[in-house]
Computed example of a mutant assay.
Amino acid sequence: MKGVLLVNLGSPDSTDPKDVKRYLEEFLMDERVIDLPLWLRTFIVKGIILNTRPKKSAAAYEKIWWEEGSPLIVLSERLQEKIDHLTQVPVALAMRYGNPSIQNGLQTLYNEGVTDVLLIPLYPQFAMATTETILVKAEELRQRHFPEMQFTNVPAFYNHPDYVRVLSESIQSQLENKEWDHLLFSYHGVPERHIKKSDITKSHCKIDGQCCQTASPAHQFCYRHQCLETTRQVAAYLGLKEGTYSSSFQSRLGIDPWLQPFTDKTINKFASEGVDKLAVVTPAFVSDCIETLEEIGMEARHEFQQNGGKTFHMLACLNDDEAWVKVLSRWIDEWALSPIEK
């Protein structure tokens, strides 16, 4: 029997600093998030970050927390419920960190008799710290607890025509009847070394301004290329004029080189250079979360206006948008109708 597991990033169980600390420890101790030797990762995370960050992060979560709970969890649950009503196979939900866990999601499907699972990491672009860690964790759990299961993985869909269409039309509808000077595509940042580690050619990715535009097998797993390509294809779909849109990267951590340009510096630069009306979309996320609602919707908005900007349009993620639900449901049904490989 076939079934589907949707997997998103995750969230603390509450805004209590203890829950936030527990979540951050699981997240930051992942070797694909902070890819340093265990002793150094432990020192940085448990010796430094977890002694200072939980209270600050808890305060940030409090700003965006909904009555029903974490926005990311609530929105993911709404998405799962809508898809489950439209598809022919069971659809479960899991988070890479926190609850409900991937093990819990697989167990739910197993209890329904599912042995053939379609894994859908809810990330349009591939990255070590997102898609890869989900697939690795799921395989570890399969081998340990569900050896009779087999997985099919949905690849990065950053350039899938269906995704480009629904993202473009979502942007268009949200900006309808609004005035804006520039549309910024803000993607979650990653360290430059992640890009090079994911380079299957071991030589193509130089992050030199040219490699992402030069065809290569490396692009299958290159987060930077995939982000820039999402921007390019959406801009083409919407007919945006050159100079009216750009890409940037948010949420950096530590002192190592991260992908640039940085979102915060870019937004402040726009404000100081006379861009009065800025719109920001965050296509690395399909569900609104602390990085979109607080980091961009509150902090970046405040900085933009403090530096001279006037109007700031924060665009919602796809969330449980009906067009997005229909796309995912169709992908699932197409897979469900295909024969099970032996």
Score class of each variant (00 low, 15 high):
C289V: 05
I200Q: 09
R144Y: 06
K137V: 03
S329A: 15
Q306C: 13
S247L: 07
I207N: 08
P161Y: 13
L328T: 02
E81W: 03
E341Y: 11
S57I: 05
D13W: 03
Y61C: 00
P191V: 04
S272F: 00
I195F: 05
I200V: 15
V190L: 13
F43N: 01
F43P: 02
D288K: 02
L183T: 09
M149F: 10
L315I: 08
L238C: 07
E26I: 00
L75G: 00
Q172S: 15
L259H: 01
I120F: 07
S168H: 06
E334K: 14
V89F: 08
N111Q: 15
L24D: 04
V281I: 13
V45I: 06
I48G: 05
A58K: 02
K265M: 10
D208M: 08
H204R: 04
V4A: 05
E77I: 03
L40W: 08
Q233S: 07
V91G: 04
T108W: 05
D320T: 10
L75C: 05
Q80V: 05
K178S: 10
E26W: 01
E295H: 05
K265S: 09
T214K: 14
I44F: 11
L278T: 01
A284D: 01
H302N: 15
R78S: 11
W66I: 03
L167G: 01
L86D: 03
S170Q: 05
M314G: 07
W331A: 03
L36R: 08
F285K: 00
Q306W: 09
Q80S: 07
L328A: 07
P124N: 10
G243N: 09
E67Q: 14
Y97V: 02
Y123P: 00
A129D: 03
Q306T: 15
P17Y: 08
K137C: 02
P217C: 10
L184C: 06
L72N: 09
E322Q: 15
K178P: 07
P12D: 07
E179Y: 11
R41C: 06
L36T: 05
T282G: 00
H302Y: 13
I171T: 06
A129T: 03
F157W: 15
E179D: 14
D116Y: 10
P12N: 10
S168N: 07
T42L: 13
L93S: 03
S70C: 10
E26F: 04
Q125E: 04
L122P: 00
Q103F: 11
Y237T: 10
W335G: 09
I340N: 11
A92Q: 12
A336I: 14
A300E: 12
L238D: 04
R232G: 01
E132N: 11
T15L: 02
S101V: 03
V281H: 06
G105E: 01
P71E: 08
L141C: 06
P217L: 08
R41L: 04
E291P: 03
L93Q: 02
D16G: 03
W66M: 15
I44Y: 01
C317G: 12
V89W: 06
N111A: 11
F304W: 06
E273S: 13
R32C: 02
I73K: 14
K202H: 15
E341W: 11
G189H: 01
L253H: 06
I255K: 13
D333H: 05
P155Y: 12
F312I: 12
T133H: 08
L79K: 09
I48Y: 13
N268G: 12
R96Y: 03
I49P: 00
Q226C: 04
S57M: 13
K18F: 04
